[in-house]
C-alpha cells in the first residue's frame, strides 16, 4: 500500500516538473525579444549589427532631442492613438448598448460586419479602404489613418463592452427610471458606471492596437508623416540605431508601471469595500 502511494506520487511529481519546465521555456521565448530589445538599447555600436560594449549614450541622445524625426513619429502615433481610443470607446459604448438592447432589421448584418475587421486580414481592409479613398479623392494623412484605426478598434471595443452588459442591466435601468431618473440621467448614473470595467479594457485595448499598428498606418499615410511602427519598419532595412531601442524600452516601462498602478488602485478600492 505504502509503495503504491509513493509510486503514484513520484509519477505526479515528475509530470509536474516537466510541465513547469515547459511553461518556463515558453515564457522565456515570449520575453526573449523584450530582453534583446532592452540589452541592445545599451549597445555601444553605431548600428545594432553586433555587441560592442555597454553604453547609456542612446538614452542621452534620445533626450537631447536631436533625432527629431523619431520624436515626431512618436508624437504622431500618440495623437492618433489617443484620438482613435476616444472615438472607438465612445462609439463602442453606444454601439454595444444599442446592439444589445434594441431590435432592428439590419442588426444581424451589423453584428456580422463587426466581426469582419477582427477576422479578415488587416491588409485586405487596408487596401480596400485605400482604393476607395483614392478613387473618391479623399486626402491621405492623419484623418485617413485615424479612420483606418477606428475601423478595427471599434469592433474590439464593441465586443469587449458587450461582454460586460448582462441581463441585469435592463432591470437596473428600469429601477433607475422608476425612481425618477430620465433616460440621460439613467445612462450617466447607472448604465455607464456598471459597465465601466468593460469600458476601461476597451479603451486600453484600442490604445494598444492603435499605437502598435503598422498595416493601416502604412497603407493610408499617403506621403505624410509616418507613425512610429511604420518608421521602425522602414528603418529596419538600413539597420536600427540604439535610440529606437531606448525609446521603445522607455515605452514598455511606462506601460507596465501604469498598469501596475491601475491594478493597485483597483485592489485598494476592493479592499476598502470589503472593510466597509
Amino acid at each position: 500500500m505504502e509503495q503504491v502511494k509513493t509510486k503514484r506520487q513520484g509519477k505526479h511529481r515528475l509530470g509536474h516538473f516537466f510541465a513547469t519546465l515547459y511553461i518556463f521555456i515558453m515564457y522565456a521565448v515570449f520575453y526573449l525579444p523584450v530582453v534583446v530589445m532592452v540589452v541592445y538599447s545599451f549597445n555601444d555600436a553605431r548600428k545594432n549589427y553586433s555587441w560592442m560594449g555597454f553604453t547609456t549614450r542612446w538614452y542621452a541622445k534620445l533626450f537631447s532631442f536631436s533625432n527629431t524625426s523619431l520624436w515626431d513619429a512618436l508624437i504622431y502615433s500618440l495623437i492618433i492613438a489617443v484620438l482613435a481610443t476616444v472615438i472607438s470607446t465612445v462609439i463602442g459604448v453606444l454601439g454595444a448598448i444599442g446592439l444589445k438592447k434594441f431590435e432592428f432589421k439590419a442588426k444581424k448584418f451589423i453584428n456580422m460586419m463587426i466581426y469582419v475587421p477582427i477576422i479578415v486580414p488587416e491588409i485586405v481592409l487596408a487596401v480596400a479602404t485605400l482604393i476607395l479613398f483614392v478613387t473618391f479623392g479623399i486626402q491621405m494623412g492623419l484623418g485617413s489613418i485615424l479612420i483606418g484605426h477606428c475601423t478595427f478598434c471599434i469592433p474590439y471595443a464593441v465586443v469587449t463592452i458587450k461582454g460586460r452588459i448582462s441581463g441585469d442591466n435592463d432591470t437596473l435601468e428600469e429601477a433607475s427610471m422608476d425612481l425618477g431618473a430620465n433616460r440621460l440621467q439613467t445612462f450617466t448614473k447607472v448604465t455607464i458606471p456598471t459597465i465601466m470595467p468593460g469600458v476601461m479594457s476597451a479603451a486600453f485595448l484600442s490604445f494598444t492596437l492603435s499605437i502598435d499598428d503598422v498595416v493601416m498606418s502604412n497603407m493610408l499615410a499617403g506621403g505624410s508623416q509616418s507613425t512610429l511602427p511604420v518608421m521602425i519598419l522602414s528603418l529596419n532595412r538600413t539597420g536600427l540605431t540604439g535610440d529606437v531601442n531606448a525609446l521603445t524600452t522607455i515605452m514598455i516601462v511606462i506601460m507596465v508601471i501604469s498598469m501596475l498602478i491601475y491594478s493597485a488602485i483597483r485592489r485598494r478600492m476592493a479592499r476598502k469595500e470589503a472593510q466597509a
Partner: peptide, 27 residues
C-alpha cells in the same frame, strides 16, 4: 416610468452594484 408616481420592488432586487446601500436608497 420616471413621470409616474408609483415605485417598484424588483424580483432580482436590482440594486445598483456600483453604489453603497446609502447611495442606492438616496437615488
Amino acid at each position: 416610468p420616471y413621470q409616474r408616481d408609483v415605485n417598484t420592488v424588483f424580483q432580482n432586487y436590482s440594486l445598483f452594484p456600483h453604489m453603497t446601500v446609502f447611495d442606492n436608497v438616496a437615488y
